[in-house]
Computed example of a mutant assay.
Amino acid sequence: MTQDDARDRLIVGLDLATVEEAEAMVARLGDAVQFYKVGFELALAGGLVLAERLAGSGKKVFVDLKLHDIGATVEKATRQVAKLGATYLTVHAYPQTLKAAAEGRGASGLKVLGVTVLTSWDAGDVREAGFSETPEQLVARRARHALEAGVDGVICAPTDLPVIRSVAPRPFHAVTPGVRPAGSAAGDQKRIATPADAIRNGADRLVVARPILSAPDPRAAAEAIIAEIAAA
């Protein structure tokens, strides 16, 4: 894998409180990073405007809103995200929600990802939520729903990649948060892997936030992860 290909595989999560902080981080990372995620916190602080601006400047953007509502609302919201020029949007992987997002995406360049099981959940959390399946069984079922609905892929824990790839080979996208370089703190993530392991197990792109944002030199931290991806 070339360095440019590896660079395209890294999505930096702008998990920051203000647009100003996010813009400062983007400037600090410079041309080292080509792909950014805007999640709930930043979106509610004006981050969707930033997402459109980043896309307009040639960066790729992942709008991580995890939509789940009645079909008509999800379809219309997905259409609005497509207008921003985003590359990815997340919706929860329920059949009606997935189908509505696929309709809203239409012929745009937006790719819809179904959320399978959050990386902060383990088997106990899945049981507590009322599911009788193991996390792996639930992930497989939701990946099948995503395939049947015609969306572009899923977002999943890196430990679930073998399950995803057994159900849905490429070009179906598998995007993984919960990626931690060796020696990094797990934080609130329960199902994690290193960048190299995630790539080897079939991830298309990796979402990394805290190990980069909290590093003394965020650009150097991003470049180290990109080098690990390239080597994998």
Rank of each mutant, 00 (worst) to 15 (best):
H92K: 11
Y94D: 15
Y94A: 14
Y94W: 13
P95I: 12
Q96K: 13
Q96P: 04
T97C: 15
L98D: 07
L98S: 07
K99Q: 15
K99W: 02
K99I: 08
A100M: 05
A100P: 06
A101G: 04
A101T: 09
G106P: 01
A107P: 00
A107S: 12
G109F: 00
G109L: 03
L110D: 03
L110A: 01
K111H: 10
K111G: 02
V112H: 02
V112Q: 09
L113Y: 06
L113A: 02
L113P: 01
T116G: 00
V117F: 04
V117H: 06
L118I: 13
T119M: 03
T119L: 04
S120G: 02
W121Y: 14
W121S: 00
W121V: 04
A123P: 01
A123V: 09
G124R: 12
G124K: 11
G124E: 14
D125G: 12
D125H: 13
R127D: 11
R127S: 12
R127T: 14
R127G: 02
E128C: 06
A129K: 05
F131D: 13
E133M: 15
T134V: 10
P135H: 07
E136I: 05
E136N: 03
Q137D: 12
L138F: 01
L138H: 09
R142Y: 15
R144T: 11
H145R: 14
E148H: 02
E148M: 04
E148S: 05
A149K: 06
A149L: 11
G150E: 10
V151L: 15
V154T: 10
I155F: 00
I155R: 07
I155Y: 01
C156D: 10
C156K: 01
C156I: 03
P158G: 07
T159V: 13
D160F: 00
D160Y: 11
L161R: 11
L161Y: 08
P162K: 15
V163F: 03
V163A: 13
I164V: 15
R165F: 01
R165V: 02
A168G: 07
P169D: 12
R170Y: 03
P171K: 02
F172W: 01
F172I: 10
H173T: 13
H173W: 14
T176L: 06
